[in-house]
Amino acid sequence: MITKETIRNLAILSRLEFTEDELAKYTQSMDDIFNYANLLKNIETSHVAPSSHAIPIQNVFREDFVIPYENIDKILSNAPEAEAHSFVVPQILAD
């Protein structure tokens, strides 16, 4: 059972904010979706290993040598606010 409180907590965790109306809508649609997803309870999996990948690959590595990146300015020019060759963010701790 998905409640408004569930959605409210998930919103804080996800850095999202909703109006009361949106909260109600998401509560309803998520409840529908999880009612459907609960059909997974019908399938026995206690001895099944979970798969994180579609196809198993292992041990992919990179050698430890430096390749300086040449387009740093193109990264910084994407910043909504930049100063002193840095990204700028507003006050972290409110007064």
Partner: peptide, 22 residues
């Protein structure tokens, strides 16, 4: 923080992130 949409009115970091994403 680094690219894309940012709410410029936000006074604090958490507000900026939350409003930008919303």
């Amino acid at each position: 923080v680094r690219f894309g949409h940012r709410n410029k009115e936000a006074k604090s970091l958490i507000e900026m992130m939350t409003k930008s994403r919303s």
